[in-house]
């Protein structure tokens, strides 16, 4: 378990290094990058991830991949929505704070869900406590926990939870 965490952190850091430097021509750069990732991983590996290589299982990666597209579409919708609200003279807002329950258990998944909620139309995560998310909703349509959850989380939770 510990080793898997370490390897996952090293792989992740090294991938970022390669992308940032574009250094596939110079072996010296690659070696330096690898050594630095190993040293950093030794210190931060346990903090960075809890499940290690489990995150790289094909099923989870595919889930993340599909999720990215769903998410980008929602992001564009959110921005058009905000632009409409901001630019319309009457400023149509109807804000409220609602509570939503999530079925996700992984901390990383919750983080992604919270991030997605913040970036989708009219909602922003205020706080997470256990399995409850508190959400500031710019245009409240319903106060029911279940119904609000379905409207806000929508497809995200299904894609993120795809294990």
């Amino acid at each position: 378990m510990k080793l898997s965490r370490l390897i996952f952190t090293i792989l992740f850091l090294f991938a970022v290094w390669v992308l940032l430097t574009g250094g596939y021509k110079d072996p010296q750069e690659l070696v330096t990058g690898f050594l630095v990732s190993v040293v950093v991983s030794l210190f931060t590996g346990p903090l960075f991830t809890r499940r290690g290589l489990y995150h790289l299982s094909p099923k989870r990666l595919w889930g993340k991949f599909v999720y990215l597209f769903v998410f980008l579409i929602e992001l564009v919708k959110a921005n058009v929505d905000v632009a409409k609200r901001v630019l319309s003279p009457s400023l149509p807002i109807n804000p409220g704070i609602v509570r939503v329950k999530t079925k996700l258990t992984e901390d990383m998944d919750k983080l992604w869900l919270a991030n997605s909620i913040t970036l989708t139309p009219g909602t922003m995560t205020l706080d997470i406590k256990g399995d409850e998310l508190f959400i500031h909703w710019i245009d409240v349509k319903t106060t029911d926990v279940e119904e609000a959850g379905e409207t806000i989380k929508g497809a995200f939770e299904r894609h993120l939870g795809g294990e």
């Binding site: 905000v82 901001v86 400023l91 804000p95 922003m124």
Partner: peptide
């Protein structure tokens, strides 16, 4: 500039500025 309070401002600020 237009939103009435901090939370609504954050909403407008975050989404539009991210994209």
């Amino acid at each position: 500039l237009r939103m009435p309070d901090l939370y609504n401002r954050l909403q407008a600020g975050t989404k539009a500025s991210t994209l």
